[in-house]
């Protein structure tokens, strides 16, 4: 399973980001291997329509779980269609903290309806 956590910068120690498609970085964690990888969000300066584009990007990377703060309407529709499980990490901790909270079952799912 691949989890995507929205982040302010690369790496597990970077602060988690509340915005979804406008997050500066996406960090991917493969729960089978424990490997993580961060990419700079290529859509950060795009004028609009970033939600659906970000979701397609995550879909192409095989992501099934997303941890973020807030999700816009267009992104929510695409995430729902793709069968993603989306969780809210409301804290100001790191990507690692967000992942730990998810693993501990402490995160609430974000409603995509």
């Amino acid at each position: 399973m691949i989890i995507c956590i929205t982040a302010r910068a690369g790496g597990m120690d970077a602060q988690a980001e509340q915005r979804f498609a406008r997050a500066p970085y996406f960090t991917f964690v493969n729960t089978e291997t424990g490997a993580s990888e961060s990419i700079e969000n290529p859509l950060i300066d795009a004028s609009g329509g970033v939600g659906p584009r970000a979701v397609q990007m995550l879909s192409d990377r095989g992501v099934t779980v997303v941890i973020t703060g807030h999700v816009g309407g267009n992104a929510a529709r695409a995430l729902a269609a793709g069968g993603f499980k989306v969780f809210a990490y409301p804290g100001s901790g790191s990507v690692a903290d967000a992942l730990a909270a998810y693993n501990a079952g402490n995160l609430q799912p974000i409603s995509l309806a």
């Binding site: 329509g49 939600g51 659906p52 397609q56 879909s59």
Partner: peptide, 16 residues
Amino acid sequence: CRFGALAVVKDTVLTF
């Protein structure tokens, strides 16, 4: 599409 008017996710294509 640079405007996000289409998204291919899993086995469907969404249009906006």
